[in-house]
């Protein structure tokens, strides 16, 4: 087994005034290396909270989270930041690129925060990744000059720059038209098939789940059901 993510009774409670809101209740799950998993559920179901916890952006109220066997549920901010920097890549619904940085500078930004890094080498690597994503000629442009699909590609390249252990995609097609959305899914799918990148896609779009190995349904903070997808559609099947 190549288990890289394991949670035990992961719980997150928010205090809103005098009431406690249980955003996540006793979630236990496991994800293996090379898996492509979708987390699906209606808005407010707790899927974003789960992603934030798995992505080390937040810490659970109770329960344990093992990332590559290391319990990260009690780590301090600095350790979590280092994990996010080296092991995790994020792709957001709203792209979250810094508007005043060029595409290339956005892509290498995670590496900037690693003092031991070699920026010249990173830039070469970034250009290669941008080329693979078909947006090499956009390297010196600002995000505002790019289309939505192009921006999301930049975000994917940024997520990959540190060769992460897992890539989290939070509604990656949410702000795109369906055709562009499919192109993004295709890129994510190819990364998983060809490079073996472990990916977790959070979505409420059921059509995306057909490309994933496993579908985790979240409802009211619980895992409602987990379905192994026996007929995984591959990248080739994504309509052009």
């Amino acid at each position: 087994m190549n288990e890289i993510v394991r949670t035990e009774n992961l719980t997150k409670t928010y205090h809103l005034g005098e009431t406690d809101v249980n955003a996540l209740k006793n979630v236990s799950l496991s994800i293996n290396k090379g898996e492509l998993v979708s987390i699906i559920g209606p808005s407010g179901s707790g899927k974003s909270t789960l992603m934030h916890l798995l992505g080390c952006l937040d810490t659970p109220t109770s329960g344990k989270y093992f990332l590559e066997g290391e319990d990260v549920s009690k780590l301090n901010d600095t350790r979590l930041a280092n994990i996010r920097n080296k092991k995790i890549g994020f792709v957001f619904q709203t792209f979250n690129l810094l508007p005043h940085l060029t595409v290339l500078d956005n892509v290498i930004l995670p590496v900037i925060y690693n003092a031991k890094s070699n920026l010249r080498e990173t830039e070469r690597k970034a250009m290669k990744l941008l080329e693979n994503a078909g947006i090499k000629e956009r390297a010196k442009h600002l995000p505002a000059q790019l289309s939505g699909g192009e921006r999301q590609r930049v975000a994917i390249v940024r997520a990959l720059i540190n060769d992460p252990l897992i890539v989290f995609a939070d509604e990656p097609t949410g702000n795109l038209d369906s055709k562009t959305g499919l192109e993004i899914i295709k890129i994510l799918k190819e990364l998983n098939e060809e490079k073996g990148v472990t990916e977790i896609i959070v979505t409420h779009d059921i059509s995306i789940t057909q490309f994933t190995h496993r579908i985790i349904h979240i409802k009211d903070g619980f895992i409602e059901k987990e379905i192994e997808n026996s007929h995984v559609a591959n990248a080739e099947e994504i309509k052009k």
Binding site: D77, A81, N85, N96, L109, P110
Partner: peptide
Amino acid sequence: IRKAIGARNID
């Protein structure tokens, strides 16, 4: 965004 991609508080 900076924090999500790994900026520490000190950064």
